[in-house]
Design a protein around this nucleic acid. Structure first.
Lengths: 120, 120
DNA sequence: ACTAGTGACTTCAATATCGCAAGTAATTGA
DNA sequence: TCAATTACTTGCGATATTGAAGTCACTAGT
């Protein structure tokens, strides 16, 4: 499990990073949060169509890892928004590098907006 | 499948990058290749102990994706070494960023050697 | 010639994880 | 009262991963 800190594969910082966010969906969720999405249904709406059970599970994991916090923004009915912490936001340089690599080597990929690639 | 270019999840360069190397093992293999490992058994020897069937499969995929080439360096018995292409080598900035994140946020991770973090 | 050993994989059964579809709960608006 | 919306949860068959063991092509030792 990503968040199981009891038995590490090794002390390698790359491996430990990957054991948190190195799956098919986590970085997609963080991408969307960086891009301004906030609610569950906004996140569920991506072009990649993440299954909702997977979305819920990844959000719980990201919260447990302190990559994001769940904030109540409306009480009747209870509605939460998901906000990246510094730890989560600091994934951005990784996303930018992956985007650059994708644009260089995978044909037909979108060029991200400039603000995304320049953000810090 | 990572190398199945027929049905893309989307045109997002991040998603398309992840669909190639966004799994539990691929970046570990590339890490080791960047660090000078060349043969199958050297790669199988990492502290993370990748299962050999997974190693073989990922190497085939990386070759199919032109991230590396398999070079014969001995003919009796046939022995191959795996060498990163530019496409594969260009994963390095991503590895460096993940390593930085890991060092910042996961306690007890190794600090990579300076040459690794400074390499281009 | 026989046997053990090495490197590079492959095969297999058990287990874990995933994706899809459907269901639930709370609340609002018609 | 009833349909709609948001945010999830549940169930289950399909897919993927693991660990162990096996195979194949040699080579070196006796």
């Amino acid at each position: 499990m990503s968040s199981d800190n009891q038995f590490l594969r090794s002390g390698c910082p790359i491996v430990n990073g990957l054991d948190i966010f190195g799956d098919k969906w986590t970085l997609v969720i963080i991408r969307d949060l960086v891009c301004g999405k906030e609610t569950y249904s906004e996140l569920a709406d991506s072009p990649e169509k993440i299954p909702t059970n997977r979305l819920a599970e990844r959000l719980k994991m990201l919260e447990a890892e302190n990559m994001l916090v769940k904030e109540l923004y409306q009480s009747k009915p209870k509605r939460y928004k998901y906000v990246l912490t510094t730890k989560g936001r600091d994934i951005l340089p990784i996303l930018q590098d992956i985007a650059k690599w994708g644009n260089n080597y995978v044909e037909g990929t979108w060029i991200p907006l400039e603000w995304f690639m320049e953000a810090t």
